[in-house]
Every structure is written in C-alpha cells, then in structure tokens.
Design a protein around this nucleic acid. Sequence first.
DNA 1: TAAGTCTAGTTCTCTAGAGAACTGGTTGAC
DNA 2: GTCAACCAGTTCTCTAGAGAACTAGACTTA
Lengths: 216, 216
Amino acid sequence: MIPSENRLAEEYGVALATMRMALKQLVDEGLLDRRRGTGTFVKQPAFRADLFRFFHVHDVDDSDIPVIPESRILNCQEVPLPPEVQKAFGADSARHCIKLERVRLWSGEPMLFEEVYLRLPDFEELLSLNLKAVGPLLYPVFLEKFGILISSATDELSFGIATEISAKQLELAPEAPVAVIQRIARNPAGRVIEFRRVHGRPERFRYRVTLGDQPA
Amino acid sequence: MIPSENRLAEEYGVALATMRMALKQLVDEGLLDRRRGTGTFVKQPAFRADLFRFFHVHDVDDSDIPVIPESRILNCQEVPLPPEVQKAFGADSARHCIKLERVRLWSGEPMLFEEVYLRLPDFEELLSLNLKAVGPLLYPVFLEKFGILISSATDELSFGIATEISAKQLELAPEAPVAVIQRIARNPAGRVIEFRRVHGRPERFRYRVTLGDQPA
DNA sequence: TAAGTCTAGTTCTCTAGAGAACTGGTTGAC
DNA sequence: GTCAACCAGTTCTCTAGAGAACTAGACTTA
C-alpha cells in the first residue's frame, strides 16, 4: 500500500487533482490498484499465463478447460550462442547462454520437445537450481526466482522434420514431419529474454490464439 | 469533427473538466481523436489488418515486409448452415449462410484454400456483388460495403489431410497432409461474424503472431 | 507572389476544492 | 458475546477556472 493521494500530493507539492491524474495513469498501465475506501496498492505484475501457453489441449469432451501438460526437464547447461539465438538476442548479448531441453507430455505421451535458450548472466543461477522442483510453467519461475517478467512473445509456426533428438524424444521415426514453433519472448521493455524452438507431434497438435480486442 | 469541449460542456450542462474526462475516456477507447489546436474528431475504426493476416510470408531476403498473397475467388453462394458453423454462430443464427471459396496464391503458386462462412441476412448483398472487384483482404470489404468491423478473432491451428477440393486447388495429392486453420471472427460486441476453415500447403507454411503487450 | 505576423479557436496541464461513496475498525447497547 | 451504529480515512465524481501550447487561417508587408 502506498500513501493516500492527499499525502502524496502534499509531499510532492502538487495539487490533489494532479496527483489523481498521475495515479489514474499508473492504474491504466496496470501498475497500481486503487480501492475506494481502502487505499492504493502496487499491483504485482501478474502476467496472463493463458496468453503464453500454446498447445491448448482440450479434453475429449471438448470442454474449454485447458490442460497443462506434464513437464520433464532433460538438460540444462551453458552452451555457446547459436547464430539464430544471437540474432534474436541482439548485439549486446554475451557469447554464451543457457540451453534447457525438456519434453512435455500429455496423458503420459510425449507431445512437445522444447529447446529453450536463456540469456547469461541473467539466468546464471538456473544452473545450480534444483530442476526437479521446477513446475510445468517456466515464466512464473522467471518472475519468482529472477524477478524477470515476460510480457510479450512472438510465435512463428511452421512445418518441418524432426531432428535426431526430437525424433527420439517424441518417439517418432527419424525425419518424421513435426510442427515447429519458434518463440521470441520479451520483458516489458522489449528486451528479448528467451528464444525457444519447439517440435511437436503433428497428429494431435493444436495451437489456439485470440487476436485483437477480447470481447467482454 | 465534433464541437469543442467548451460548446459540448455548455450544451450538456456539465462542467468543462467533466466533459474533458468524458472525452478522454472515448479517446482511450479509440473512438475519438483529439488534436491540440485543431479539434476533436471521430476516429474511424481502422482495424489492424496486420493483426488478422496469418500467413506472413516474408521475402526470401528475410526482410520484414509481409507480402499479401494474390486472391482468387472461386465461388460464392448460399448454403445450408453446416453444424460446426451453427455452433460458432450460436442459437440466433439463420438456417442458411453464405459460403465463399477462394484460393490465395503467392508468386503464382497456390498456398491457401479458404472456405469462408458468413451470416445471413447480414451479407445478403455479397451474392450480387462483383467478386472480381474484391481485393485480397476481406475485412476491409466488410467494413466498407457492410459497415461491419472485425475486431477480434480466434485462430486454431492444427494438422490434417486435404479434402478432395482442397487437394485439387492446392495441387496436392489426394489426402496429402495440410496445415489447417480454423478462425472465428467477431465484431466489437463479441458477435461471431465469420467462420473460416483454411487448408495450407505445409512446406512453406508460416503463421506468425505476437502475444501480450506490444513493446513500444 | 511569397513570406512572415497576428489572432481566434482549440486542446492540454495544472490548481483548488466540495460532497458523495465506500471501507475497516472502534465503540456502545443489549 | 453479538450486533448495530458511528467515525476517520480513503477514493470517486464533479465543479470552476487560469494559463500554456498549439493550429489553421486571415492579414500584412516586401
């Protein structure tokens, strides 16, 4: 909770109405939350997990409840920056990064194989973290352990063929067709935080997204 | 252009500041545009074409200029409402709808085959329209000819196999694998305006989307 | 004609404050 | 102990207005 508009206006030497306008702006930006009769609170930036979760698997009965697949982390190590990741991270990037490999399963069956590239030194501590304790969603971990908020991402979907490792992890024949998702995720300042390449089993693959102004 | 805040406040019998707040709200909602020293204008609801254009084909040199594929309309007729379209349109729908079939080409090669379902009687006039004159983008036509604005859409991507007609139009073997996009498009009130099913040639298929708050 | 100046009209930012609406806690009556 | 009434503190909505910033067009001048 922050001081009342009265106190703040006095403290900063501006009129009450001016302070109100400033506070309203911060509310519009989603940084503050005001409750009449109670006070003004800093809003913790709760990112919309549903926005960033592709692979909206729906239950067989077609209910609208998305299921979060189980997650199995295979690997997490420091690697030299691959060129396409370099391109996404930009010129100010370090020469190494973290590469995290994991498989996501649904009803026990492997559905997605993910290669996640993360900036160093930002995510240095991830190497010493207990990966067993990491839940199925990465972005909440980024926020809680590293204070890094993912607020936007660009996905690009296409078709391709499985690599040696993705074929093995997805239990597919070598060079089988797969869905390919490439994601670039950013913090609110627009800095690229993560580069991700995902291979998915094609036959049950689904990607759902809503564009534009969500109707109320 | 609408009257000045001074005149409006007088006319409606409210204080100037109150009218200003009201106007600001309308600006925030994207309905008005105010220019200092000039006046206040109603903003025509220019929908973001780039938001709704899947198949962001990029040039071979990987420049970021999206290319709009050429469009060839095959068919436009009244048909009974298929069940999945009925489900999307909801209970208040008529028993018939318009079905529009078209192929979209890039560099002369067919890339997408689209089946577009539109509400009747809203789009009645489309049947008598000269389809040759319709440009490659449908939504601007909806806005200009019918006054219907598409403001949001939900896309669902998956994999499937070509139908008889889509295989023919895409010059693929029967039952070849294709990319499937299903779209439900809505007006600002949330009413479903369009149901669309698209088949795409998989090998050059790309779907790009940005989620969350776009960085400035 | 061309360029600069002026002016009425507009929006933008800020001040100063009154009263309503609402909340959470305290007090008092039973 | 329980419930109602009260109260201080908060945000919300609205009023009334001054002065700055800016624009488009009219006017003047070379």
